[in-house]
């Protein structure tokens, strides 16, 4: 039984808290429905939560009873509250710039008191109707603006709006996630791999690594159907100035001979991302990994990295789940 805002709802066998509340007509926001995006955060003020419902939340939140309703299949009665802890910040779209044929950089004014690590993500919502999406932050906390990378999807409600949204207000919740540079291990080799706008958190990690003078070898792998989707190429090349050990690889699914091989400091290959990564890194037991982008690929890379010797605690994932269509 769930007690939510004074009403009792029986949970069916195997049903998630989110599904139960939605089935009873309650309004609860959600996006990925797989425990990744944290849109459906709720608080349990009484009742024991299954551990999986709090996976990836910060300890302080776990202790307060925050959990992810979409993956919480309760084994006992829960007294629930809406989440008010993840404070909302208001911001404004400052600039929108093209990065690739279907990717734009959206720069937001950094709200006062908004603390984050580059590579973490925020939930951005449109004040007029509450439409919400999650985006990673590629910029450093020392900058005045937050840089998000937005994939322009056909019929994308949020991306279609954001590309024309200069001057519009947005609200931000967060930051969330563990894809950020770890200080205190300047010699550890790092592997960063992502597809599409999964590059955004990886750029955040790289910029932070550069700021900290990381000395260990860093390999960045970016996957895209074609060369035009490998964006921020020259900016990443410029990062090799402060990160001499940085190596840049592009994985393409189609491309002409002239597009492949070495291009400046980049190396392009016509091969799936996992193949490009693991042909260079058959052993990963000393490495820290950051893996972002399309969910099934993220899961595959995580498993293969583990089998290649990486410790699970040193594999940081961010799966960019598409909004769940109701």
């Amino acid at each position: 039984m769930l007690r939510f805002e004074g009403k009792d709802y029986p949970v069916e066998d195997g049903e998630s808290v989110l599904d139960c509340l939605l089935r009873h007509g309650e309004q609860v926001s959600s996006l990925c429905r797989s425990g990744a995006c944290q849109s459906c955060l709720l608080k349990a003020s009484a009742g024991a939560l299954p551990a999986v419902a709090q996976l990836g939340l910060k300890d302080a939140w776990k202790q307060q009873g925050f959990f992810l309703a979409c993956v919480c299949r309760p084994r006992e009665d829960l007294l629930l509250e809406r989440c008010t802890a993840a404070a909302s910040h208001s911001s404004q779209v400052q600039r929108v710039m093209a990065l690739a044929p279907n990717v734009v950089s959206v720069r937001l004014a950094r709200p006062a008191g908004f603390d984050f690590r580059a590579g973490q993500f925020v939930q951005l919502s449109r004040p007029s109707d509450g439409l919400m999406r999650a985006y990673s932050i590629a910029s450093l906390p020392s900058e005045d603006e937050l840089e998000l990378h937005v994939a322009l999807l056909s019929n994308g409600k949020m991306s279609g709006w954001l590309r024309e949204a200069v001057g519009q207000n947005v609200s931000l919740r967060g930051p969330f996630g563990e894809c950020f540079y770890q200080e205190g291990e300047p010699d550890r080799p790092l592997v960063l791999a992502g597809t599409g706008t999964g590059l955004a958190p990886l750029v955040g990690v790289l910029r932070t690594a550069a700021q900290h003078g990381h000395r260990g070898e860093i390999s960045l792998f970016h996957g895209s159907p074609q060369l035009s989707g490998i964006y921020l190429r020259s900016e990443l090349e410029a990062l090799t100035e402060s990160l001499p050990s940085l190596r840049l690889f592009g994985s393409l699914l189609s491309g002409s001979e002239s597009e492949l091989g070495a291009q400046g400091r980049w190396q392009f290959e016509l091969a799936p991302l996992e193949q490009v990564v693991f042909s260079r890194h058959p052993k990963l037991d000393a490495h820290r990994l950051f893996v972002c982008g399309q969910p099934t690929l993220v899961q595959l890379l995580r498993k293969r990295a583990y089998l290649a010797g990486a410790s699970l605690s040193r594999i940081h994932c961010d799966a960019f789940a598409a909004p769940h269509s109701a």
Partner: peptide, 19 residues
């Protein structure tokens, strides 16, 4: 996980829980 006879039983999205 690498043993094809049984890997499917251990191939969980939540690798921390499976571990």
């Amino acid at each position: 996980l690498a043993d094809e006879r049984i890997s499917s039983f251990f191939d969980d999205v939540d690798m921390d829980r499976q571990r």
